[in-house]
Write a protein that binds this DNA or RNA. Structure first.
Lengths: 139, 139
DNA sequence: ATAGCTGCAAATGCTTTGCAAGGCC
DNA sequence: GGCCTTGCAAAGCATTTGCAGCTAT
C-alpha cells in the first residue's frame, strides 16, 4: 500500500541517454534530485548543498558543469533575475515567472495565465529563441 | 549656424538636484555622458572606458556607485540579461527589449509594439514593481 | 564646518578552467 | 583501451566595501 515516491534510477538513466550524456554516478544523482518531486527553481549552490546532505559526493564545479550540460540538452532552463544570481528551472515548457524581490524566490506563471501578444518580428531574418517575462513583486 | 549638440551642464545639474544627489564633478560628467544623445544601454565598464577617453577622471568603483544611485533615484533602469552582465538603460519609460544573444546587444521595443495582457495579480496584497520582457534573438 | 563623496586597493561572490586521476562503453 | 568525466584548486570576472582624504553647501 505504500507509494514509492522516489523516481527510479531508470527514469533518470533514460533521460540522460535520450540527450546523449553519459550516465555517470554524479549526473544520475543530480538528475534525480532535480527532477524528482515536480518543478523546481534551484541555484548551483543550493543543488550542491542538497547533494552533500543526501550523501552524494560531488564537487561544486561538477554541479555547475552538469547544470549547463542539462541546460544545453534542453532538460533545464536557465533564468537570470539579478546579476550574479542564476536559477535553473526544471520546467522547460512555455511559462513565465513571478520574482519576489525580497526573498529572491521564483514562482511559475503558467503560460495560459499570461499572454504576450503582438511580439514584433525579429529583425532581418533572425529567429526568436525565447521570450522571457519576469513579473517583479515587492516582497 | 552651428548647433551646439552637447547638452548644457545646467540640465544635468537640474537632474541631480531633482533627485537630491549632490552635483559633484563626477556625477555631472557621468550624467552628461549617459543622458546626452538619446537612449543608451550601457555597462559600468563601458561607461568607465568612455569617461576615461573623454578625460573624465573617475574610478570604476565610483562609476558603479553612481549607476546604482541613479537607478535608485529613477534616472536609470537596470536590465539583467545574463548572469554577470548587467546594463543600465537611460530610457525609464515603459518598454521592453530585444536581446541579441550573439552580440550581447540590447534594443528597445516600444511599449505599444508589444503587449502583455492578463498579468495575474500579485499574491496576497503584494505590489508588482515591474514587468520585464526580454525577447531573445539568435544572432 | 561637516556631511557627503571619491579613489584606491582589497575583498567578495559566483562561475569557469586546467590538468591529473578515475569511470563508462 | 580510449575517450569522456570528475575533482580539486586556482584563476577569472564583475561587483562591492572599507577607509583615508577631498569637496560641495
Amino acid at each position: 500500500m505504500t507509494m514509492i515516491s522516489v523516481r527510479p534510477y531508470s527514469q533518470a538513466l533514460d533521460q540522460l541517454r535520450a540527450v546523449g550524456l553519459r550516465p555517470t554516478r554524479q549526473r544520475l544523482a543530480l538528475a534525480r534530485l532535480l527532477f524528482d518531486g515536480g518543478d523546481r527553481h534551484i541555484s548551483a549552490e543550493q543543488l550542491h548543498t542538497e547533494a552533500l546532505s543526501s550523501n552524494i559526493r560531488v564537487s561544486l564545479a561538477t554541479v555547475y558543469n552538469t547544470l549547463h550540460q542539462f541546460t544545453e540538452s534542453g532538460l533545464l532552463r536557465e533564468i537570470v533575475v539579478d546579476a550574479g544570481r542564476s536559477y535553473f528551472d526544471t520546467n522547460t515548457t512555455d511559462h513565465h515567472h513571478f520574482f519576489y524581490e525580497k526573498t529572491g524566490k521564483l514562482c511559475d506563471i503558467p503560460a495560459d495565465l499570461i499572454a504576450v501578444t503582438k511580439v514584433p518580428n525579429a529583425p532581418e531574418g533572425l529567429n526568436i529563441s525565447r521570450v522571457d517575462v519576469i513579473v517583479r513583486v515587492e516582497g
